[in-house]
Amino acid sequence: MLEFQLNIEGENMTTTLFKVVALGTTITAGAVFADTTQDRTGWPEGFTVGTASQGGTYFAYGSGWASLVAEELGLTGGAEVTGGPMQNMALVHTGEAQFGMTTMGPAAESLAGTNPIAPGLQMTNACAMFPMYQTPFSVTALSSSGITSVSEIPAGARIGFGPAGSTSDTYFPRMMETLGVEFERRNGGWGDLGSQLQDGLLDVIAFAAGVPVPAVSQLEVQTDVNIIEFTEEEQAKLLEAFPVSEFEIAADIYTTLEAPARSVSMWNFAVANCDLPASFVKATVDVVMSDNERMMNIHRAARSTLPENWDKNKVMKWHPGAAEWFKENAGADIPDDMIHSAM
């Protein structure tokens, strides 16, 4: 494994160590899409994709497309275990990671300079690259707990909200407060939190992740769980208070569900360091967006990784290479003032 440090100082931050999981494979110049006529001026020899903790959708999805791009373009590439969207925005902005994954809420906060990783730093050097999927917010408890609705969560319940700084940790505690839930806040990787729930160390896990969430799928195999939906009234409160949309978790996503579960969601986008060569980012986008079936084999959340969803980005400026791909292949009408460095 490779190790490096993100040296950004903030009033609520200590220097954080990240480990890179090298999932990409170096291949020869004769690789499938290693086009010798392609302009590769300024391309890096390798890349990393900032994801999140193991056991969550970001890591599974990001590891998959990192390996796919590395193989297709003949580069060394892999996924990086991080704390999620907030840290990914910081890593990509500083160039510590070439690519990352974020949700629109953390992206907006990062651009505004309110990212808790580095308060006051406007992370404008992270550019939109391609749409991924919607992140539903959902609540899971053991069936043995008797908790079948948000209103039944007891006061003082120990709730795991995911890694510190993740989308879950940033928004779900506020959502629970809005819905009148009193709780003890716990953080950790999704795999660890799933184990803690099963061991009785947590009462509830509040997930914000693409579905199916690997940790929930694993729990379903090992024990009986309740996947708790929001009521119509609860959903309406969240829609009014937060930058989220209506969402239903399809019944076929989890074996536990017998009917769609009412939820809310936030869009996820892949991001690229804005200084990367346009031809490199365009080629990367082409690999990911040109074959949805291949992406679906990586993770079922990729059912929304479609060119027509380019318009779900209303927050970040586009990387010029990504904007060029979507204009040429999706008829995207991206204004110049939404493209980085465009005049």
Rank of each mutant, 00 (worst) to 15 (best):
E233H: 10
D192P: 02
G194C: 15
V204P: 01
E177A: 13
A206M: 05
S217C: 06
D192F: 12
N187A: 15
A206E: 01
T140P: 00
I227H: 01
E220K: 13
G188W: 03
Q134Y: 04
F183I: 12
S151G: 09
M175P: 14
P136A: 06
E182L: 12
D192G: 05
A157F: 15
S151D: 15
A157S: 15
P154I: 03
E229G: 12
P154E: 03
T170V: 13
E233P: 05
P136G: 06
L193P: 01
S138W: 01
E177V: 09
I147F: 07
A155I: 03
G210Y: 10
I228G: 01
T135Y: 10
A208R: 03
L193D: 10
S145Y: 14
A141I: 06
S149E: 05
D203C: 10
Q198D: 09
R185Y: 06
T148G: 05
A141F: 09
D224W: 06
I147C: 04
I153K: 14
F137L: 05
A128M: 05
P173Q: 13
V216P: 02
T167Y: 00
R185D: 07
E232F: 00
I159H: 02
P136Q: 04
G191Q: 10
L197F: 14
Q134S: 01
F161K: 03
V211E: 02
C127D: 14
S195L: 13
G165S: 04
V216I: 15
E229V: 04
S217F: 03
V213S: 08
A164F: 09
W190L: 08
L179V: 09
W190A: 09
F230S: 09
I153S: 11
L197G: 07
I205A: 00
I159K: 04
G165N: 01
S166G: 15
D169H: 09
V221A: 12
R185H: 10
E182D: 14
D224S: 15
E220W: 05
V211P: 01
A208S: 13
I205R: 02
Y171P: 07
I159T: 03
G146W: 08
A141C: 13
A164T: 13
P163W: 02
F172D: 03
P212S: 10
E152M: 09
T170A: 11
M175Y: 06
G180D: 11
Y133A: 05
T170H: 10
I147Y: 04
D169K: 08
A215E: 08
P131D: 09
P173S: 15
F137P: 00
T223G: 10
S149K: 06
I205G: 00
E233D: 15
T223K: 14
I205H: 01
V221C: 04
V204H: 01
V150T: 14
